Amino acid sequence: METWLFLALILIIAMFGKNSSLVIATLVVMLIKALPFTQKWLPVIQNKGINWGVTIISVAILIPIATGEITFHDLMRVFRTPAGWIAIAMGIAVAILSRLGVNQLSASPQVTVALVFGTIMGVVLFKGIAAGPVIASGLTYCIVTMLNLHF
């Protein structure tokens, strides 16, 4: 019963914060929880979900290459600007930090409670988005803007 109340509270907060991604995610988790054999599927989703999410984000990132919006010429141009190098560095930094974060979650699962709470607060109260590549882009934006650089 406590888990349902906790999920309902998250759903209400997400709706109040008008965050459709968190609303959908919470409803999906509630639906999965209501299905039979939940005890088998929830741990699988918990263990593999981050990798599935990263795969979906990677597909979305690669689509502009497939459609021709981003070309090899664009990639070469990135190497000619300080802003491009900052973006590359932020992508590398976030990838490394993400790997360390996944390792941390495996070693200390209790930190998940604080991370989930912080993520919910950031998403709902500050209109944030829970996604690694977007973090790299945000860091790049901050540094490039602060240094008044352009791509």
Rank of each mutant, 00 (worst) to 15 (best):
P36L: 01
I24H: 04
T55L: 14
M30V: 00
I45H: 01
T38D: 09
N47P: 00
V59Y: 10
S21W: 15
I32D: 04
K33C: 08
M30I: 06
L62R: 06
K48H: 09
W41M: 08
A34C: 14
A34T: 09
M15V: 14
I61R: 03
L42N: 02
I32R: 05
G17H: 12
T55F: 14
K18Q: 09
T38Y: 11
T26M: 13
I50P: 00
P64I: 07
I63Y: 04
I50Q: 10
I56C: 13
P36I: 07
S21P: 03
S58H: 05
I10G: 01
W52T: 02
I24G: 04
V54L: 13
W52N: 00
V44W: 15
I63P: 01
K40Q: 13
V44Y: 13
L27G: 04
P64H: 11
A66S: 12
S21A: 06
L31P: 02
I56R: 04
K33W: 13
V54P: 00
L22V: 13
L35D: 09
V23D: 01
I61Y: 07
I65E: 04
W52E: 00
T26N: 06
G17A: 08
W41A: 02
P64R: 11
S20D: 12
L31E: 05
Q46L: 08
T26I: 12
A34Q: 13
T38R: 10
M30R: 00
M30Y: 02
G49F: 07
I12H: 12
K33F: 12
A14Q: 01
K40F: 12
T26W: 10
K48A: 04
F16P: 01
I24W: 11
M30C: 06
A14N: 00
I13Y: 05
P36C: 02
T67N: 08
P64D: 10
I61C: 15
I24P: 11
L31G: 08
G49S: 05
L42G: 03
P64V: 07
S20I: 14
W52R: 04
L27S: 04
I61V: 15
I50Y: 12
P43M: 06
A25Y: 06
K40L: 10
A14I: 01
A60V: 11
W52V: 06
P43Q: 04
T55G: 08
W41L: 09
N51V: 09
I32T: 02
I12E: 11
W41T: 06
V59S: 09
G49V: 02
L9M: 15
Q46P: 01
V54A: 04
L9E: 07
I56Q: 02
